[in-house]
Design a protein around this nucleic acid. Structure first.
Lengths: 192, 192
DNA sequence: GTCTATATTTCGATAGAC
DNA sequence: GTCTATCGAAATATAGAC
């Protein structure tokens, strides 16, 4: 059952993401992950040095998305400013979220669990950098506080509406809801 | 050290809420709760039959808020409809959230943990009732889908902006942020 | 209502064979 | 790269004295 190259590593991450979202990170044991994969617990330790290391790896995928979004803010914000660019940035956020719903769900539903990887070296530098960059955008005194609140509100609007969409608007196609969310949020930035 | 009547029960709930928000529900042991109270683990079992029972009791406080809000929707929605009443309902939600931030934080940061109390009898009836009532509001075909999405967005806007306010707008007084959130969300319902 | 002491379970993690 | 076997730690929960 030896796997060619990095195959198994990704299979583990996929199954872990599945189970973490079904049961929660803390309620999911390595035994369960191994069982669903048809291997034993010990096999997992060849690929990851600890349970939290699996969570970390999944989290790093979110980091990539976050960095990508922040790069975009910097890029577009150079010509205009973050406020003027916000509707376009939100559109991108909607796309990212829909394309990576599982990862966002993991983060939303296991927020407490992520505190346990906060002291990992690999993680810490990146994470503080991302949070700092985001705080920096939201602390920009050149943008009126009212607009910065608007920007924050728009993020929450997208997250709750799209991640709760299945439960609330299960009959409607996701893309229809997404389009409505986009236009709703755009109304908060008239003329931008 | 015997406590008069239900005193200790509430002290346990307060300390548990504190620790659950600091460390997460799963990472908090009964030993820690007992230590912070200056009693032993076994003493807790006199007041609660299990750890998840403590979480349940805290969750029921949120139920009360939820039922209160839904009653208000029904009451106001009888004259107008939920859409017309929404801005006023959001104002109420902002107040509830600010007055019970700890409870909302608990729910937000430990969403996965709540899956473990979902099969409790006391909880189940209430919970399904609340969720069903809420879904019912959001499934009302008399309200255009675009407006129902707007309503959902507004909830997310309030939650993210107010619960993340400390990290983002720590310098500003909470009431100032709250007022900006209210007026931002009101813009999504012009003429209501 | 709180204590000491302990039963029981389960988990994360490691050692070493194959 | 996966296995069997096991260790050690920590947690929930209970029994019974005070």
């Amino acid at each position: 059952m030896a796997q060619p190259r990095g195959q198994m590593r990704n299979r583990i991450l996929d199954v872990a993401l599945e189970l973490f979202n079904e049961q929660g990170y803390d309620k999911t044991s390595l035994r369960e992950i191994a069982e669903r994969l048809g291997v034993t617990k010990a096999a997992l330790y060849y690929h990851f040095k600890s349970k939290s290391d699996i969570l970390l790896e999944l989290h790093l995928r979110l980091h990539e998305l976050g960095r990508g979004a922040l790069d975009e803010i910097d890029r577009v914000g150079a010509e205009k400013d973050a406020l003027n660019a916000w509707p376009a940035l939100i559109d991108r956020f909607v796309d990212d979220l829909l394309a990576n719903r599982d990862l966002f769900l993991l983060h939303q539903r296991n927020q407490a669990a992520f505190h346990e990887i906060v002291d990992d070296e690999r993680h810490q530098a990146e994470n503080e950098d991302i949070e700092e960059r985001f705080r920096h955008v939201m602390a920009n005194p050149a943008i009126p506080l009212a607009d910065r609140v608007r920007m924050t509100c728009s993020i929450g609007a997208v997250m709750v509406a799209l991640m709760g969409a299945d439960a609330l608007f299960g009959d409607e196609p996701t893309e229809r809801i997404a389009e409505l969310v986009r236009s709703t949020v755009h109304e908060l930035f008239p003329g931008k």
